[in-house]
């Protein structure tokens, strides 16, 4: 686990669970592999910028701050 990735990991897991998706289904939507998504959610790796952009597109927002608030609540 990498310390600087913890918050992003939480964000990704929160969005996935809110959509009720499995790792595999979410990974497919984000255009990545389930093992990579697993590593992102475990804070072992940082997502590529394109993956963050796809997450925002999935949420139909550009407001990262609002997404983080939902993740922390």
């Amino acid at each position: 686990m990498r310390y600087e990735n913890v918050h992003t990991a939480r964000l990704f897991r929160s969005v996935r669970l809110r959509h009720g998706l499995s790792l595999r289904a979410m990974a497919k939507r984000l255009g990545t592999s389930s093992s990579t998504l697993n590593r992102i959610e475990d804070a072992h790796t940082a997502p590529k910028p394109i993956v963050v952009e796809r997450l925002l597109a999935l949420e139909e927002t550009q407001d990262l701050e609002a997404l983080f608030i939902q993740a922390y609540l």
Binding site: H7, L11, P49, V52, L64, E65
Partner: peptide, 21 residues
């Protein structure tokens, strides 16, 4: 450079959201 910019954006958003909360 893209990764650097996105990383900063994520950190800034996380910081701002925690400040609000």
């Amino acid at each position: 450079m893209e990764a650097y910019t996105m990383n900063r954006r994520l950190l800034d958003a996380a910081r701002a959201s925690l400040k609000t909360l």
